[in-house]
Nucleic acid binder design. Sequence first.
DNA 1: TAAGCTGTGTAACAACAGTTACCGACATTG
DNA 2: CAATGTCGGTAACTGTTGTTACACAGCTTA
Lengths: 214, 214
Amino acid sequence: MIDQAPGYLDKFSSVFEPELFAEMETNSMLMRIYSGDTMLNPGQNIRAVPIILNGTVKVSRISDDGQELLLYYVKEGESCAMTFSCCMAAQTSVIKATAEEDSILLCIPVNLIEGWMSKYPTWKKYVMGTIMSRFTEMLKSIDDIAFKKMDDRLVNYLKEKSKATGSSLINLTHQQIADELGTNRVVISRLLKKLELEKRLLLYRNQIKLLSDM
Amino acid sequence: MIDQAPGYLDKFSSVFEPELFAEMETNSMLMRIYSGDTMLNPGQNIRAVPIILNGTVKVSRISDDGQELLLYYVKEGESCAMTFSCCMAAQTSVIKATAEEDSILLCIPVNLIEGWMSKYPTWKKYVMGTIMSRFTEMLKSIDDIAFKKMDDRLVNYLKEKSKATGSSLINLTHQQIADELGTNRVVISRLLKKLELEKRLLLYRNQIKLLSDM
DNA sequence: TAAGCTGTGTAACAACAGTTACCGACATTG
DNA sequence: CAATGTCGGTAACTGTTGTTACACAGCTTA
């Protein structure tokens, strides 16, 4: 399986010790998912822990009445802490995971990861690092939602997007942005207009250009 | 040190394997803290991981301008996941921890806990379980803040308090409640009054009585 | 080109939360 | 008992967000 996409795993050869790396090569499975595909829904069982080799996965929370809220992105080389802890505690998923762009995942069978924790220090370090950084991200989310107003949250969101894509052009509709921030299209249009008047960005159809002094 | 409060550790003798239990007895330290004491502030270094033997500790997040927001409570037998991951990733604290009531903590030196992860399966299980349950609590917080209005959050808060103390009488001022929910006293008074008119509770000075049909 | 769809701008209004200010009730203490 | 401080009730106002409704522009497709 691994041979189908040689090279993707290489970046881990320096992170993990050789024995672990070898085990990963023989036991795990490569998977491709395409932009927009949902990998995991709340309530679903977790059969394998994914590590993102290439691409981006969006993790979000769904409210009782179906409203969505962006929690964080999982990027290249990272994994989802929620998945680790869910499967070590043998629980079903509490979040939704969607491919933000076409992505390649390394899927590690659930039954292996726990043993690796005791056997391989580098794996333990990787897992704990992942968990730590997710706590940090979630706290950032909480700060944003609890203490910041929508205009700040919007600016943060746009900056993040721009950083992620490496471009000052953002190709999203106001509706898409509203969905990710858990609000309403009109609110986003209103705030974007305000930002345009403040000369912090330019608005086009399906596109937003961030100006230098965001 | 342990001998000063015999019995507190006993409840763990069935949770942890004997060797681990013995190590805990010889290497860790008991600490008493008193209601209102702050154990940990954002930015502080973590020298030991605490397990709550008795009492309750409140974990909260502080905004840039000093406003507080309750994240969750750590109760008897539990520990703080944030602390585990902070010290395994050698980072400073990102939260504030305060004793909610007089409490007794078992403090485990940071340098031991990582080794125990590989050595003792029950310890690994305990740590991962703690982390998992904290993720769950934080998601619940996010749901509350993002999707619920203040009146729902207030009702949830009151129910939690009532469950924690095992009584339908809650001894708190409106100001204290406002602080924990990150809002303003007047807002809480207003909502409580509304709940009283709906015959869901009774208001007294320094006290709230929840009625059966909350 | 006409029809239809999608995306954006805007007005008008409702709902809610935050703020300030003030009053009166109650408790504590000298 | 008088003075003081704490707690809770309420009014009045503001700002932010959510909601509905509609106009218009640009793109797509028949």
